[in-house]
Amino acid sequence: MDTLRLMHLFTRAVDLGSLSAVAREAGSTQPTVSKAINALEAHLGVRLLERSTTGLLATAEGLRFHERARRLLDEYEDALADVRGHARQAEGLLRVNAPVALGQFHLNALAREFLALHPDIEIELILNDRFVDLVGDSVDVAVRLGGPLPPDAVARTIAASPRALVAAPSYLAQHARIERPDDLGRYEFIRFAWLPAGDEIELHRGAESMTVTTRGRYRVNNALAIRDSLLAGAGVGLCPHWLVHDLVQAGQLVRVLPAWSGTPQQVALVYPSRRYQPARARLFMDFLAQRIGALPGLTAAIDR
């Protein structure tokens, strides 16, 4: 039994969600691929895939095996390249997770640029504002914006974005002038939901720091919704520059208490805490480390 071949067909079936697609890719037929995966299931003594008229769905055992099989196949290919004395051409599927706003504004374009440089790599970019299970969701690289990091992961900080208090001119025109940080408690404050600090924000002016308790009736777990709400004149917000720099430049939002700023938002690449990372993941992380810090509203980390 060619176990490595069977493992490859199975991992591609999970990646593509179709036995027919795997057959086309392998230059084979759908019945042949199905027979091969059946043989692998018989060898392992577990069902890996649930088949239906609408497609394929990996079982719980299949998901666990898929993660480890992908890693084993990547290590095998790199070992072959090493013993032959040449670098392996990066290839295969790369699963990337990122926040919605950063993905829409920047990562979507960067992913396409990366694909143009590496024609044998595929990217599945999943955008959401929740912390995913890197291993359970088979994520190779996740982009994190501040906040606590998963305990079962390795993080690489690549950039930071200053944070400033901003509001629409229309909102400020309807309220008394904000002269000091303590005044913020009298204004509607729009913030991200589920923040560990709740309504408290930390502001800095040079070496001076202070914590302010804000007040707001609207909290939302999406940065784009915060941006739109501030633009509509719903209140004041503390936002990273990458999210609002264009609106500030256009005068659609203005700085509030410009001498004060929030703690910079760190941008980190997070990946599962395992010894081996496939070549495609290493390439993509190096690419993002070079590019993200040069984007508007972001600065490269001093120590990557």
Rank of each mutant, 00 (worst) to 15 (best):
L253S: 07
G147S: 02
P148Q: 10
I190T: 03
L115W: 05
G251C: 09
P296M: 02
S20L: 11
K35D: 06
R70T: 05
Q174E: 15
G147L: 01
T214L: 11
F189A: 01
N108M: 10
A21E: 13
L73F: 07
S28R: 07
L295P: 12
H66S: 04
I201V: 15
F105W: 07
A98V: 12
I190K: 06
A60L: 12
V244Y: 13
Q265D: 13
F284Q: 05
G237P: 01
P151I: 06
Q265I: 11
Q265Y: 02
S209R: 14
L224R: 12
R70L: 06
Y276F: 15
A155M: 06
A176I: 01
A173L: 10
L57I: 07
P169G: 03
R280E: 09
Q249W: 03
S170G: 04
L184S: 10
D246A: 15
S138C: 10
P31W: 14
L288F: 04
H175D: 00
L295G: 06
E202C: 09
R215H: 14
G233R: 10
V143S: 05
D78K: 08
Y76N: 07
V267W: 12
I302E: 14
A250M: 08
W260M: 09
I158K: 09
V143H: 05
D199C: 04
L247T: 04
Q252S: 12
